[in-house]
Design a binder for these strands. Sequence first.
DNA 1: CTTGGGTATGAAACCGCTTTCTTTGTCGAG
DNA 2: CTCGACAAAGAAAGCGGTTTCATACCCAAG
Lengths: 365, 365
Amino acid sequence: MKRVINKSTSRSPGGSARASSRVASARTAASIQDVAAEAAVSIATVSRVLNNPNLVSEGTATKVRAAIDKLGYRPNAFAQGLMTRTSRVLGIALPDIHGEFYSQLLLGADAEARKSGYHLLVSSDARAGDMPGPNLAFGLLDGLAIMLTEPNPQILKEANAAGVPLVLVDGDPSAGAHDVILVDNESGARDATAHLLSRCQPSHCYFVGGPKENFDTASRAKGFAAVLSESGSKPKPAQMAFGQYSFEWGRGWAAGMIGRGLLRGAGVLAGNDDIAYGVIHAAREAGLVVPDDLLVIGFDDTRLASLIQPTLTTVRIPLPEVGAAAVRALINRIESPDAPAESLMLKPSLIVRESTSPREWRHGK
Amino acid sequence: MKRVINKSTSRSPGGSARASSRVASARTAASIQDVAAEAAVSIATVSRVLNNPNLVSEGTATKVRAAIDKLGYRPNAFAQGLMTRTSRVLGIALPDIHGEFYSQLLLGADAEARKSGYHLLVSSDARAGDMPGPNLAFGLLDGLAIMLTEPNPQILKEANAAGVPLVLVDGDPSAGAHDVILVDNESGARDATAHLLSRCQPSHCYFVGGPKENFDTASRAKGFAAVLSESGSKPKPAQMAFGQYSFEWGRGWAAGMIGRGLLRGAGVLAGNDDIAYGVIHAAREAGLVVPDDLLVIGFDDTRLASLIQPTLTTVRIPLPEVGAAAVRALINRIESPDAPAESLMLKPSLIVRESTSPREWRHGK
DNA sequence: CTTGGGTATGAAACCGCTTTCTTTGTCGAG
DNA sequence: CTCGACAAAGAAAGCGGTTTCATACCCAAG
């Protein structure tokens, strides 16, 4: 049970005691040297057993493997990385880690990454100009997936400078030379709007979104406006509102509209489920029954959507798939760095629930 | 704009073209050598400028820094790690990444980690015996925080073998020699139960938990039972049920109980918010009004709790704090490896909302 | 009995950085 | 004027791997 006193200073220099003799293997993890000694071969052979077994005779290979087991040898990841310039670690930067939204994306990403033998280094980039220190562990990463909710050239530049393969997730449409995973928010909004139009007047349709600068908000609004226009009734400014992605904003907006008697018989496409829920709440407070007096559609299909009453018709974003696709794209790029940039667009799907199914329809069906 | 064709094989050996001359810096990232050359100093000096500036004269330091900027030099993380045996990357293994629950924890952990200049490598360990490859990027990690919902010596052993500093989160109480972050579920359950007892009969109190094997379930049940016992009425077996942490289980259980006429005037402590919501749902379907005919308390204070109607009284777990504490503990351990193992217990808090505030009480107040 | 082509190994060159050891000045003190 | 202490900078020894290049052997072909 010999202990290495050496380490107590926490800054022992290289070598010295170590290099002199391989006699009593100290409590330092076994190195390839130790294995080589134990198996009475050269370190080259050990390395080959691990990386190119077919170059080694069966006999010695067995010997080496035995030594490896005996010593519990694990190749040093840093040394390995230094040579191979590879870590099998992918970074993923989210605008904000919390909330079920992003965690679903993480879920998919993690699964896909592990399937290919990669690991995931997450980071909420909600710091911008905080610490001066390196924000992301660039340099350790084999690749980086970035999700930008709002334009942010800063991180892009940093990442580019570091020369890390990059994949953009659901963000900057203007990103030229990068692989991009997109969610077809516009299409989702179109489907939702069409659904509304099938059961209410174009002039009675409303869009209540989040911040106008937000990429997602913009394309959802666009889809809404497009369908209305195509139906022959271009939306008036009053039919589209922008605010926050919050319950309160939805509730406030709806309360105002109801006060002016505008929401009865209307159809509302909310920017996300929270807003939708706010609208429903305001409606209920004002005595309006949601499926019957007012149609409401959300966005994102959060857990909320299937739990509230009435259950919420909403546009489901395939988050886990987005995460998985991002990772897959990243791995592709890593493996063939010179392939042309690709962009993948994932389609959301409309989940019809009670909030757009008035009684007459339910029976009618 | 010269390009390196070299890399096309994707397995170029070391050196050759590179070592021969430092003339035209290839598109390979600048190394410390390049900086040294540019500044006309030795690499040792460059290193010192970065790590021990006080050993370098102001003049040369400036020169070196200029070179660094000019070349956009970033020290190679692998080489650095090889020497310092440090990566500033912390691993965090969760039983299952998805769900707002864990993402909140991640949020806290991430914030704390970045505050100290560390990075977070997450991983859902929902694989056990999947891929044979190394599951966690041990070896790259400076430390590892593990959250085990159910006993799982496997990972523990692996991690121990890798010699990585370890912190256990809200899990195995029997873990001897490790730092542990705990959530005082029992205390939370006690508070909740006491709250119930203040407005209903002990014999009408029920606990509806998740899986019995689950650590959390166990301690929550324990707290419930303890308070009842202390109030002089030890809970009968029928007052405690175990199932799943799901809406459906809560709803099913409640439906059954209501069918037997047992829930009117009762108080229910659910194992989590989902179960609680299931109970509320069943009650509503059976015509019971929740704050008035039946008290319900949840656990976890998920977003759901404040959004449903009635809003849910629940026990809030300080998840972000848990994550932050875990990271902090890990960093402590890394910085002083020989400090005695610590365990930190975080207290949940009871959030009283409508589901336990019958009308008479609200007015009474 | 050479000679040529495999096959199995070892020796050694690096990867890029940190840190000890040395070396070289510079000065104030003796 | 000489000497020792001290500050600044370089040379070089690794860290633990991977991969080239060279070596040694074995065997069939000439």
